[in-house]
Write a protein that binds this DNA or RNA. Structure first.
Lengths: 198, 198
DNA sequence: GCAATGCGTGTCAGTGACTGACAAGTCCGT
DNA sequence: ACGGACTTGTCAGTCACTGACACGCATTGC
């Protein structure tokens, strides 16, 4: 009976499609002309809709860049859940991050372009860090179970480790970007984690 | 006499005084009415000047809150320089952070009020994290000298450790705020650092 | 003393990110 | 064909922020 459910599923599908289309166009403009110099009106025009409608798909301009990072965070969290419970917190996160790294390396060209754009868009750094801070919320619960010591401290420890691991990841990716994709992220990441634990 | 030197020094002095005055008034309004609900016009009116002039003292509204964090970062960096060169990177930062913690504990009332305001001002979290990211720039050079291993990796390692240490600090301070100042920050910080290295 | 200079400030106009409200159009099941 | 759910454009308005200009006040040079 052509229930409203199929209807809403379809709407959600097209909605996601439009969203992706906007994000793609926006990223292209940002990479080409720089983030700050590209106005939302430009993006809107390039997709053929009004700026008001663009804001119906993205809460902020920043979200056109960092919006997809939410699902990246979820993916990393999933990868973490998939690790055997016997693994220590650090080894588990390290492996969970590897998956994300492989995605980076899969399309180096695009990702390097994006990373380069981020560098001269200082207003995006805060947004980026804030997104990653939210990743910690997804990682901490699982990490908590891999820790010992006083119960009330474990969640805190888990968050600290998660942050530290992401800091290692960021620096490894930065180095990768700086060297134009030469240095493999995975190796650097391992070295940094070892240093932090040193 | 009345040389130009005294003159410009005096100007700088009054400038800093006005700046402090604005920051104070702004913080009072932010704590009382919330950051987002307080407009720059409100702040300007409360100090008796035009909004345009307020922006001559603070580059952004955020800076009225996090502006002083620049010098905090410098202080921590100085404290780090003061540690004996024989100390390992981790022990040196740990001690450097202790100084900052003491300042927090020195005026718990005000600092708790500020910390509480920050919680329901989501737009400030990114700015906060970005400021701390800049702290890393100040800490890394000294930490680099305390590391071994391949030369080209040391600066990267230093940054990772600095970030990790700040993550520990943040979580310790958060816990302190959450418990209304009950749990001493220093103890939690030590526990978290131990966990990260564990 | 008096003009010149420098600096702080207010005002005004303008941009860009965002929001609320309303009207018009489209798609869908009935 | 009708009604409702959903999408979109338009318009007006807020708020952070910026550049330009003019005024006033204090210090400086003569």
């Amino acid at each position: 009976m052509a229930d409203t459910r199929r209807n809403s599923a379809l709407r959600e599908l097209t909605r996601q499609a439009v969203r992706a289309r906007i994000a793609e166009a926006a990223m292209a403009l940002f990479v080409a002309n720089g983030y700050e110099r590209t106005t939302v009106d430009h993006v809107a025009e390039s997709v053929g809709m009004s700026a008001r409608s663009v804001f119906r798909y993205f809460p902020t301009k920043e979200d056109m860049v960092v919006g997809h990072l939410d699902e990246v965070g979820v993916k990393i969290a999933d990868a973490l859940e998939a690790r055997p419970t016997t693994e220590s917190a650090w080894t588990a996160v390290r492996h969970a991050l590897k998956h994300h790294i492989e995605e980076l390396a899969a399309d180096p060209e695009t990702n390097l372009a994006i990373a380069t754009m981020l560098i001269d868009a200082p207003s995006l750094l805060p947004a980026l860090l804030a997104k990653q801070a939210r990743w910690v919320d997804g990682l901490a619960p699982n990490l908590t179970q891999r820790l010992d010591g006083p119960l009330n401290l474990r969640p805190l420890k888990a968050r600290a480790i998660a942050f530290a691991a992401l800091a290692c990841l960021n620096n490894a990716v930065d180095e990768w970007t700086r060297t134009g994709g030469a240095k493999p992220v995975g190796r650097t990441l391992d070295a940094l984690i070892a240093a932090v634990r040193g």
